[in-house]
C-alpha cells in the first residue's frame, strides 16, 4: 500500500513537472543524451544478439498467412486500449469505430486472426495513454530511452503504466498462456519492423530519436495538426 502511495506521489510530481511550459526549442528535446545513448547501446546489443535473430527466424519459419494472423490477433487486442483512449479523449466517432472493429474482428474475424474490419471500411486508429496525456496538453518532457522498452519521452514512459494495466493480455489468469502471449507479441512486433529498419541511415541513435518524436507529435494530433509539417521529414 505504502509503495503504491509513493509511486502515485512520484507520478503526480513528475506530471506536475511535465505541465510546466517548455522553455527549450528542438535542440533541447534530448538533455539526457548521455544516459539515453548508454541505454540505447544496451538495447541495441540486446536486439542485435537476441531479439533480431529470433524475429528473423520467426519470419523465416512462419508462413506469411500465419504471420499476418498473429499480427492481426495482437492488433485486435491493441484496439481495446485504443478504444479506451479515444473515449478518454472524447473522440466518440473514433471510439465507435474501435468498438465495431473489436466486435467484428473478434467474431466474424475468428478471435481477431482475420482483420475483417479494414476491408469492411472501418478505420483503424492508434491511441495510447501517452497520446491521451499529450492530447490533454501534457508536455512530452525530455526524450528518454528505457532499458528493454526503447524510445519514449517522460510523458510516454508514464503512459506505459496505464497501457500495461489495461492490456487485455494481462487479464489472463493462466501464467503460462499469458507469458507465451507476451513473448509472441514482442517477436511479432519486432518482425514487423524488419523491413522498416532498412531505411535507417546515418547515426542510428539520432535517426530513431527523431523518427520517434516526429511520429508521436503526428499521432497525438491524428496527423492533421498545425505543428505537423511534412517537410520536416
Amino acid at each position: 500500500m505504502k509503495a503504491k502511495l509513493r509511486s502515485l506521489l512520484v507520478a503526480g510530481a513528475v506530471s506536475v513537472m511535465l505541465t510546466q511550459p517548455a522553455v527549450a526549442a528542438d535542440v533541447d528535446v534530448d538533455p539526457w543524451e548521455g544516459f539515453n545513448r548508454a541505454m540505447f547501446s544496451f538495447n541495441d546489443g540486446l536486439d542485435t544478439y537476441a531479439l533480431k535473430p529470433v524475429s528473423q527466424g520467426y519470419k523465416a519459419v512462419m508462413p506469411d498467412i500465419a504471420e499476418t494472423g498473429v499480427n492481426n490477433f495482437f492488433e485486435n487486442l491493441a484496439d481495446v486500449g485504443t478504444l479506451l483512449n479515444n473515449l478518454l479523449q472524447g473522440k466518440f466517432s473514433n471510439a465507435t469505430e474501435d468498438f465495431a472493429r473489436i466486435a467484428f474482428n473478434s467474431t466474424f474475424g475468428l478471435a481477431g486472426l482475420i482483420d475483417v474490419a479494414t476491408p469492411m471500411g472501418i478505420e483503424k486508429h492508434d491511441e495510447d495513454f501517452g497520446q491521451t496525456f499529450g492530447y490533454w496538453g501534457v508536455d512530452s518532457g525530455p526524450y528518454l530511452v528505457l532499458p528493454f522498452f526503447g524510445p519514449a519521452t517522460v510523458r510516454d514512459g508514464i503512459g506505459m503504466v496505464p497501457d500495461f494495466l489495461v492490456d487485455p493480455v494481462r487479464q489472463l489468469d493462466d501464467n503460462g498462456a499469458r507469458n507465451a502471449l507476451y513473448v509472441t507479441r514482442i517477436i511479432d512486433g519486432r518482425a514487423q519492423l524488419l523491413e522498416a529498419e532498412k531505411l535507417i541511415s546515418g547515426d542510428k541513435y539520432t535517426f530513431i530519436r527523431d523518427a520517434y518524436l516526429q511520429k508521436r507529435a503526428f499521432s497525438i494530433v491524428d496527423g492533421d495538426g498545425e505543428n505537423y509539417d511534412e517537410s520536416n521529414f
Binding site: A100, A103, F104, F108, A117, G121, I122
Partner: peptide, 13 residues
C-alpha cells in the same frame, strides 16, 4: 448492438 453497412448488405452483432 453494433452494425456495419456494406452497400446494400450489413453485418451486425
Amino acid at each position: 448492438g453494433i452494425q456495419q453497412k456494406l452497400g446494400n448488405g450489413r453485418v451486425f452483432l
